[in-house]
Design a protein around this nucleic acid. Structure first.
Lengths: 354, 354
DNA sequence: TTGAAAGCGCTAACAA
DNA sequence: TTGTTAGCGCTTTCAA
C-alpha cells in the first residue's frame, strides 16, 4: 500500500522524493542548498514539488535550529492610537532587517498577555513589550529566557526604550509659563503607568524651577472617556492651564469643557502628550509634547535584532542591559494653548442651552 | 562526560528526566497528561523543571500535531485607524475561543505581505486577510492550503466578510437628497480597492433612483493627504455635497477647503465612510456611514475558528465557501452635512489672509 | 552529485 | 504507574 495521496495530509519531502525518484535528502537540499544539487535534478524537484503543492513544515525546520525570522511586539491596547506610529516604526525596522513583525494586542488584560506570551515565546526570536502591564519581575523572567526589549517603561536589567518625558514635560511647562500661566493642573493617567510617574514628577520639578504651582488631578483612564471624567473633576478646582497625561485625555477634556461653553484656549489652555493621530485635527488643534513614536518602535526592534544576530535562536537570553535609550520629545505648539486670561470667566459644568 | 549544563542550550525533557531519575516520557506526561502520573512524581518533576528553567519546545510539540492556538490577521496598513476596531473585535473573538490573535502589518507592500504569509502560514492555524493587496488568485491559493477568511473584500471561493456598502451608500445619498442637494461628488479611493468599486457603483445607483447627479473624482490615496489632493481637484469642479471613499479622505478634504475659507457644511456638505476613530472629534464632526468595524473583525475570526474546530491543523484547507457575510452599515449624522446652500459662495483654493 | 542514517525535542503507542 | 520504542518532517553528517 503506497502512501500516495491516501489522506488529505500535506505532502512531505518523502512524497516529493518518491515522485521524483530521488532520496529525501536530495529534495531537502534542492530547497535549502540549491547549489549542491545538479541543476537538472533541482529543476525537476522544484517542478514536482510545486505541482504536488508541497510546503516545507516550519516546525520541522525550526526543530533543526533554523530561524523563524519572526519577532513579536506585545501591545497593551492597539486601539490606542499611541501605538500607530510605534508599530509603523517597528514594522519598518523589522522589514529592513529581514524580520517579520507580529503584533499581539492583549487588550489591557494581564491574563491575555500571559497567554499570548506563552504561545508566542518559543516561536518568535525576540519580543518587544510595549507598555506591558506585567510586573517588573515577570518581565525580567521573560527577558532571562529570550531576547526582549521593553518599550515605554524602564525595567532594571532589561533593555528599554523610552521617551524623554522629563525634557518633554519641561518644555510644556516652559511654554505655559511664557504664556503667563501661574498654576497648572496635571491630569494624571493610570497609577500603574510608569510614564505617568515620570511625567508627574517632571511636571513638579519644572513647576518648581519656573515658579509655577502644579496640581494633580486623577488618576484617569488614558482614554477620551478618561478625559471627560477629568473635565468633571476639573470643574471643582479650576486653573487656567492643564497638562494631560496623554492626548486622549486632553481631547476628551477639551470636548467636554467646550460643551459647557468654556473656551479653549480662551478660558483654559490645554497641553497633551504624545502627538497621536488626531491631535492635529481635533478642535482646537492640540498643543502637545510629541513623543518620538516611530523612533521608539524602530529603536526597540533594532536593539532586539542586534541581539539576535549575536546569539542563537533558542537558549539565547537577553544581553547586557545598557541604560535605557532615551529618545527626545518635542513640543508641538498648536491652537489649544494661549495667554492666561485676565479674569476667569464664570462657567458651570452643565451644557449651555441651545 | 555528563551533558548537564555544559552549553547555554535550554534544558529538554531529557535533562529534566535525568535530574529526576525518571524516563523522559514520564516528564512529558507530567506536563501534558498530569493525571497519568503519580502525584508525588509529578510534583517532583514540576519542581525540578521549574528550577532548571525548563520550557517545552513548541516546535517539537507542533511537529507531533499539537495545535498552536494561533491565528493571524494580516492588515495592509495598521496606521489606518480603520483597523482599530476591527482588530479589537477580532482580538476579542479570538480570546473568547481561546485563540491568540497575531497581527501583521504589511505596510501596503505586496512584497512584505508575501513574506509575512510565508513565514507565518505554517505556524498559525488560520489567517484573516484584511484588505489584502494580493490578487484574487493568490488569495485563493492561500485558502487552498489553509483555512482563511477575507475581510472587506469578496473573493470567489473564499469565505469573506464585508460591510454592506450598498445599503450604507444608499443611506448617505438619501440623507443628502433630503437636504435638497442635487449633485454630489464621489471622492474615489484607490482603484485596486474592492470597496471603492462597490461604493462608487452604489452611489451611482442610489443617485439614479433618487434623481441626483453623481460625479466621480479620483482616485485618491485613502489617507488624509489623499483628501487634500481631493480638495484641490474639487476646486476645479464644485458641487454642494461630497461623499468620500473613507473618513480619512473626508477629513483631509474638510481641513483643506476650510483653510480656503470654505464653510462646512455651509458651502459644502461632506459625508465620510467607516466612522473611524477621530470622525467624531474632527471639526466639524463628520457625518459618516459607520462600518460595523468591530463586528467585521469578530465575525471573521469566528468563521475562521469555526473551521478550525472541524478540521485538523495541517493539511486543512479552507472549507465550503458560503456567500459573503454582509454586515450592516449605519448612517451617523453629525455636523458636516447641512442643507444645500441657496447660492454657492465664491471661493478660491488659496488660503485666506490672516 | 547523491544516498543512507542519525538525530532535533517531543508524544504516543505498547509493554512491563 | 512507569519505561521502552517509534516516529513527526526536516537537516546534516558521512559515505559512496
Amino acid at each position: 500500500m503506497v502512501d500516495d495521496d491516501t489522506g488529505a495530509k500535506p505532502p512531505t519531502i518523502y512524497d516529493v522524493a518518491a515522485a521524483c525518484g530521488v532520496a529525501p535528502s536530495t529534495v531537502s537540499r534542492a530547497f535549502s542548498r540549491p547549489g549542491r544539487v545538479a541543476a537538472a535534478t533541482a529543476a525537476r524537484i522544484h517542478e514536482v514539488a510545486e505541482q504536488m503543492g508541497y510546503r516545507s513544515n516550519p516546525f520541522a525546520q525550526a526543530l533543526q535550529g533554523s530561524r523563524t525570522k519572526l519577532v513579536a511586539l506585545v501591545a497593551s491596547d492597539l486601539t490606542n492610537p499611541f501605538f500607530f506610529e510605534i508599530i509603523r516604526g517597528a514594522e519598518r525596522a523589522a522589514a529592513e532587517q529581514d524580520y517579520t513583525l507580529l503584533v499581539a494586542d492583549v487588550n489591557e488584560s494581564t491574563e491575555v498577555e500571559r497567554q499570548a506570551l506563552d504561545r508566542t515565546a518559543g516561536i518568535v526570536e525576540g519580543i518587544v513589550l510595549a507598555t506591558s502591564r506585567l510586573s517588573d519581575t515577570s518581565i525580567r523572567a521573560i527577558a532571562r529566557r529570550q531576547p526582549a526589549v521593553v518599550l515605554n517603561r524602564v525595567v532594571t536589567d532589561v533593555p528599554s526604550v523610552v521617551t524623554d518625558n522629563g525634557r518633554g514635560m519641561r518644555r510644556a511647562v516652559e511654554h505655559l509659563a511664557e504664556l503667563d500661566h501661574r498654576t497648572i493642573t496635571y491630569l494624571a493617567g493610570p497609577e500603574a503607568s510608569w510614564a505617568d510617574g515620570m511625567r508627574w514628577r517632571a511636571a513638579q520639578e519644572a513647576g518648581h524651577e519656573l515658579g509655577l504651582r502644579v496640581r494633580r488631578l486623577g488618576p484617569f483612564a488614558p482614554t477620551i472617556d478618561g478625559g471627560r471624567a477629568a473635565a468633571r473633576a476639573f470643574a471643582e478646582a479650576r486653573t487656567t492651564a492643564v497638562v494631560a497625561y496623554n492626548d486622549l485625555i486632553a481631547i476628551g477634556f477639551m470636548q467636554t469643557v467646550q460643551s459647557w461653553g468654556v473656551a479653549v484656549p480662551g478660558d483654559v489652555s490645554v497641553v497633551g502628550f504624545d502627538d497621536i493621530f488626531g491631535a492635529d485635527f481635533c478642535s482646537p488643534a492640540l498643543t502637545t509634547v510629541a513623543a518620538p513614536l516611530a523612533a521608539l518602535g524602530k529603536h526597540a526592534v533594532t536593539m532586539l535584532v542586534e541581539q539576535l544576530s549575536t546569539v542563537g535562536l533558542r537558549g539565547a537570553r537577553t544581553v547586557v542591559p545598557r541604560r535605557p535609550a532615551l529618545l527626545p520629545a518635542a513640543l508641538r505648539v498648536r491652537e489649544s494653548t494661549g495667554p492666561r486670561p485676565r479674569r476667569q470667566r464664570a462657567w458651570t459644568p452643565t451644557p449651555p442651552a441651545g
